[in-house]
Simulated scan of single mutants.
Amino acid sequence: MDGTVDGFRYGAVTPIAAYLMACLGGALGLRCTVRSLLDGRTWRPGWLALGAASIGCGIWTMHFIAMMGFHVQETWIRYDTGLTLLSLLVAVVVVGIGVFLVGVRGAGRGTLLLAGVITGLGVAAMHYLGMAALRMNGEMHYDAVTVTLSVVIAIVAATAALWAAVTIRGFLASLGASLVMGVAVSGMHYTGMAAVSVEVHGTLATSWSGASASSLALPMLIGPVVFLLLAGVVVMFDPLLVLGDGEWNRPGPAARSPRRRPAAAVETGAGTAAAPFGEPPAPRQW
Score class of each variant (00 low, 15 high):
D2Q: 14
Y10C: 06
A12N: 14
V13F: 15
V13M: 15
Y19T: 10
L24R: 11
G25L: 06
A27V: 09
L28K: 06
G29P: 11
V34L: 06
R35M: 04
D39C: 15
W43F: 11
I55Y: 06
M68H: 13
Y79K: 08
G82M: 04
G82T: 09
L83R: 14
T84G: 13
S87V: 09
L89W: 05
V92Q: 02
V95E: 08
I97W: 06
I97S: 08
G106F: 01
A107D: 15
G120E: 06
G122F: 09
G122C: 04
M126R: 02
L129E: 11
A132I: 04
N137C: 04
D143N: 15
L149T: 12
V152P: 04
I153R: 06
I153E: 07
A160C: 13
A165W: 01
F171S: 13
S174H: 11
G182F: 02
G182T: 02
V185N: 11
H189S: 00
Y190A: 01
A194G: 03
A195D: 01
V196I: 15
T203C: 02
T206G: 08
S207M: 10
S209R: 13
L228V: 02
M236S: 12
G244I: 10
G246S: 09
R259K: 14
R261D: 08
P262S: 12
G269D: 15
G271E: 11
A273H: 08
F277I: 11
G278C: 01
P280Y: 05
P281D: 08
A282P: 09
Q285R: 14
Q285C: 03
